[in-house]
Design a protein around this nucleic acid. Structure first.
Length: 315
DNA sequence: TCCATTTGACCCTG
DNA sequence: CAGGGTCAAATGGA
């Protein structure tokens, strides 16, 4: 064992991340190959399912490595902590009285600082396929509409940490901005953790934004690569492209966001992306259980949101 | 009775 | 200290 300087550990970690990213790219290519000609038979379906699992493993491992790179102190609590969901405890011995139930909450929750976020802007409160439970509502300063807070229904039974915030947009009250925090880890899902893209009703482009409050990872980290593979999801049984591009009510997810790994304007330079920057051009494969379609699109920076979230558009 | 929502209070971060 | 995120008791509906 011996030498394990912080520099060497960091270097090894970066190499490991690069290897994992490459592995995931290869797995993704395999998935595309499997998805092309004959989509239907059992073996093909099983193979694709397997590839999706492999991709998920790569993504999760990369995410873990990146998380450890940015969190020197693991976000964990002792097993005997009174805090029920992994939050730290502090000075619990100083209070032993009347309001113990409330006082136990002191320091018991810790706001996420480094979790990934991404935002959807949707014309209505559409079902995104997950079971959410509302746990709060806040009036936000200088905001016309309150912000609603949701957590995954399976937060307790499956320790799923996914949450989302929903708020009407100021300029268009008919639209809702939904900010997702963290990925679903609960089991009873249609898909693996996913990014959901929404069909924008106004310009038929797709809005996706994501960001992090941890700015230390923004310039160099393969931040995009921490996103999981995503699968397309339709509410209709027989979707078609025209329907996808024109409908505002339906939504789907693109299966191949690993292309983000080549997001050179963001990950390969030392400046933050500006409005209109083309992040990645190429063919994005969109598949469902019944159809498969490649779309030639540009991923461009739409806007820089609050909280350092960057909003992107598929055009 | 169970479960989801509401809402005021608590607590963390900047 | 202000603002925002979360908790949990109270409430209501199925």
């Amino acid at each position: 064992m011996g030498s394990s300087s912080p520099e060497k550990i960091s270097s090894d970690r970066e190499k490991a991340v690069q290897e994992l990213i490459q592995g995931r790219q290869l797995a993704n290519q395999l998935r595309l190959l499997l998805g092309k000609p004959f989509g239907g038979d059992d073996k093909s379906v099983a193979a694709k399912d397997l590839v999706m699992k492999i991709l998920g493993s790569f993504t999760e491992t990369i995410s873990i490595l990146n998380r450890h790179a940015t969190d020197e102190v693991p976000d964990q609590v002792p097993a005997n902590s009174p805090c029920w969901d992994g939050r730290k405890s502090e000075d619990s011995d100083e209070i032993t009285s009347k309001t113990s139930a409330l006082k136990d909450r002191r320091g018991c929750y810790k706001r996420r600082k480094t979790s990934q976020t991404w935002t959807r802007i949707t014309p209505s409160l559409i079902d995104d396929g997950y079971a959410w439970r509302k746990y709060g509502q806040k009036v936000i300063l200088n905001a016309k509409y309150p912000r609603n807070y949701y957590r995954c229904t399976h937060k307790f039974d499956q320790s799923c940490q996914a949450t989302k915030q929903v708020q009407r947009t100021e300029d268009d009250p008919a639209m809702y901005r939904t900010t997702y925090h963290g990925h679903h880890t609960c089991k009873n899902l249609l898909q693996a953790p996913q990014i959901i893209l929404d069909a924008n009703p106004k310009d038929s482009s797709f809005l996706l934004s994501f960001g992090t409050t941890n700015t230390s990872t923004k310039s160099h980290d393969p931040y995009f690569a921490t996103f999981p593979c995503v699968k397309q999801e339709y509410r209709d049984e027989k979707p078609c492209l025209n329907h996808i591009q024109s409908s505002s009510a339906d939504f789907f997810t693109l299966p191949d966001l690993s292309a983000f790994e080549s997001c050179e304007p963001v990950t390969g330079s030392d400046h933050d992306p500006d409005h209109g920057d083309v992040i990645s051009s190429g063919v994005y494969s969109c598949t469902t259980s019944t159809t498969s379609l490649d779309m030639d699109m540009d991923l461009v920076v739409g806007s820089v949101d609050f909280d350092d979230a960057f909003e992107f558009e598929f055009c």
